[in-house]
Design a binder for these strands. Structure first.
Length: 694
DNA sequence: GAGCACTGC
């Protein structure tokens, strides 16, 4: 093993440049409030943010928009809403909202704040996330929620009139709904200047938020407040030369850290499952060569594809003389926080999904991380003690990295967001004040698609069906199927398919031999006609003739008591399946509200597949002799995703519709079903004209 | 014969 040469910049002090971490605002009230409110109050007063209390309240009072730059442990998420509550912002029935990009953050912060305030969760302090409304319409004064939930609320109450103050937390992450919300909130503030906004952001992005909120308004309308954090300093070391193979280099670095440093776990950032597995393999191969008496290494993987059980392993407490080496994807950058990590090894790369509106292709590509990401990753080493971050690239490379990752809104399909903005009465999208505008092509293609689907008319306004579809918490093409299911008498089945498509990864296929067994389990659910629809084999299905992979899996899941052990035995993801049950019941409510009949097609597979075409009419493809497909639009070569039951089989008719297309190494289509080619005309364009006219 | 960054309604 060669000695590694890292260059450590003389003036480390990176504590000051470190970004905050996410959901954990540190300084938790560790125990239940058994000592009474006084001790909680004392603990709150010790928070770094406390000394800024008056300044913050003054800024919020005086300025419409306060941008709070808060570092880890500053306590902004838990304290600012409480300061507002204490100074009367929630009087006269007003509510203080605080949004989070993730569900876990919204719930865990709400639990903590309810304790600090000394109230039951769901009473004075509550939270609202999809499927869970733990708040009281009359009594709740502070409500934590996902940004998507608050955006949805604007569809019902466009001025968000029940809120006196809204805090948009983690705004620098620039999630799709954060961006949409900020745009709508700027508009709301023109009509309702009394509304106060608090935008919480990392250092690097604060200036751009300030510029956004001052442009076209009074320059005094927005201000920045900086808070200190309670982060430990993290020293940053760079490689002198770029590494030709960062996975191998990561192994080498981790190995040397283990030999040279005392206690503290190691967190390695890689881009995906494949790299993680290779990294763990190489590390495991080295283990027998570990010198006697050296710290033992426990190699661990962390990525979204793992089951909950496997993910929880990274939190296991290690014994003395042992060290966890956690090899993770970007999930560990913000979503999952592991205390006890003292060393971070950063490959400097990330997999990012982008959308090309011209080709309608989503692609997943590996790109260099942004500076903001690199700083955030480094911060993961300083949560419980001072740490070191090893960046597997030279410092000159860091300087050349983009400051931040392009916001999601610039690299995603805008069809649904634009439908929702239209539903909000924002018809002139060119005049909408985007924080970052999506590419013009993206807006045009989305409008074109909405027009073709009959969601907007010649005048650019929503059609009656468009108005209803905008309310549905599901993609436009799937919503369209829900509406047309009325004509095919298959509402029950489409509802299930819609729910199953909304979850990712219903099937768990692990690596190696267990994977092969899981694959066999999965095949029990499948047969001939595709992923949505397959024939027979349906030992579980009430309607053997319409054994759709998803229908069968779903029906079997509910039939066998929604049990997690049953899922495990049949290679299904229990969490995902439970979610499908929730989504289905939510969508069912919408169907009832829109008077859509919940009929079963009683085994008529043909009608069901015709209904699929009414949503997927632009996603047609034709089989060609080499086993690939050609898209109906654009004649592009498409490869079947290996998880499809049609991966190895030619469809009888030679024609399919598919749910989505994604560019990785190849252009692949996922979730496909065999169709008759005529249907593309009959059930696609026919509906297009009918609904566009009506 | 071959593959899966991460959220959210």
């Amino acid at each position: 093993m060669s000695t590694l040469t890292f260059w450590k910049p003389g003036t480390a002090g990176p504590g000051s440049t470190l970004d905050r971490a996410t959901e954990e605002e540190g300084n938790v009230v560790q125990s239940a409030p058994s000592h009474g409110s006084l001790s909680i109050q004392a603990q709150r007063e010790r928070l770094p943010i406390w000394q800024h209390r008056q300044k913050l309240l003054h800024c919020i009072e005086k300025h419409g928009v306060t941008i709070v730059v808060g570092q880890t442990g500053s306590g902004k998420t838990t304290q600012i809403p409480q300061y507002l509550l204490e100074s009367g912002w929630a009087s006269q029935g007003n509510v203080i909202a605080c949004t989070q990009p993730r569900r876990v953050a919204a719930t865990s912060v709400a639990i903590r704040v309810a304790t600090e305030v000394g109230t039951l969760l769901g009473d004075e302090v509550g939270y609202t996330i999809r499927f869970e409304d733990v708040s009281d319409k009359e009594r709740t004064r502070i409500c934590y929620m996902t940004d998507g939930m608050l955006f949805r609320e604007t569809l019902i109450d466009p001025l968000l009139s029940r809120y006196s103050a809204i805090m948009i937390d983690e705004a620098h992450e620039r999630s799709l709904y954060t961006d949409l919300l900020l745009g709508v909130l700027k508009k709301i503030r023109r009509k309702r200047p009394s509304l106060r906004l608090i935008v919480s952001s990392a250092t690097l992005d604060a200036r751009s938020f300030l510029e956004y909120f001052t442009s076209g308004t009074h320059p005094d309308d927005a201000t920045i407040v900086s808070l200190e954090g309670r982060m430990f300093p993290v020293e940053v070391a760079y490689l002198q030369e770029p590494a030709p193979d960062y996975v191998r280099k990561a192994v080498e670095v981790a190995w040397n850290i283990n030999l040279q440093h005392g206690a503290g776990d190691i967190l390695i950032f890689l881009t995906g499952r494949e790299e993680i597995e290779r990294c763990l393999e190489e590390l495991t191969e080295l283990l027998p060569t570990l010198p006697r008496g050296a710290t033992q290494i426990i190699p661990l993987a962390l990525h979204a594809g793992l089951s909950t059980e496997e993910q929880l392993r990274v939190f296991n407490v290690t014994e003395r003389g042992m060290r966890k080496v956690i090899t993770a994807t970007n999930i560990a950058e913000a979503s999952v926080t592991i205390d006890g990590v003292k060393f971070v090894v950063d490959s400097g790369f990330v997999k990012i999904r982008t959308y090309n509106p011209t080709t309608f292709l989503a692609s997943l590509s590996t790109v260099p991380v942004s500076q903001a990401s690199a700083i955030q990753r480094a911060g993961r080493a300083g949560r419980t003690s001072p740490g070191i971050c090893y960046r597997l690239y030279p410092e000159s490379v860091f300087a050349s990295l983009p400051t931040s990752t392009p916001p999601e809104i610039t690299r995603t399909d805008m069809t649904t967001p634009i439908l929702q903005l239209k539903s909000l009465g924002i018809d002139d999208l060119m005049k909408f004040e985007w924080v970052s505008a999506p590419p013009a092509e993206s807006i045009l293609r989305a409008l074109e698609g909405l027009f073709a689907a009959g969601m907007i008319g010649d005048d650019g306004l929503l059609t009656p069906i468009g108005e209803r579809v905008a309310e549905c918490p599901i993609e436009v093409n799937i919503a369209r199927m829900l509406f047309t299911s009325k004509d095919f008498n298959c509402g029950e089945e489409i509802l299930t398919i819609a729910a199953m498509i909304s979850i990712q990864d219903a099937f768990v296929i692990p690596d190696g031999a267990p994977g092969a067994i899981a694959e066999l389990e999965r095949r029990k659910f499948t047969a001939e006609e595709g992923d949505h629809m397959t024939l027979l084999n349906g030992i579980f299905s009430p309607h053997p003739k319409v054994d759709c992979l998803y229908l069968v899996a779903y029906n079997a899941f509910t039939k066998y008591g929604r049990s997690s052990s049953w899922c495990k035995a049949h290679a299904l993801n229990f969490r995902a399946m439970s979610r499908a049950v929730s989504i289905r019941s939510q969508l069912k409510k919408y169907m009832i509200r829109f008077n859509l009949p919940l009929q079963s097609c009683e085994g008529d597979a043909k009608r069901l597949r015709q209904c699929l075409v009414s949503g997927y009419w632009r996603n047609g493809a034709r089989w060609v002799a080499d086993g690939t497909y050609r898209s109906v639009k654009g004649n592009k070569t498409l490869y079947v995703h290996p998880t499809s039951v049609l991966f190895t089989r030619k469809p009888r008719t030679g024609w399919v519709v598919f749910h989505e297309v994604e560019e990785t190494k190849r252009t692949q289509i996922r979730i496909l079903s065999e169709i008759e080619p005529d249907w593309l005309l009959d059930y696609g364009h026919k509906y297009q004209h009918r609904h566009a006219a009506g």
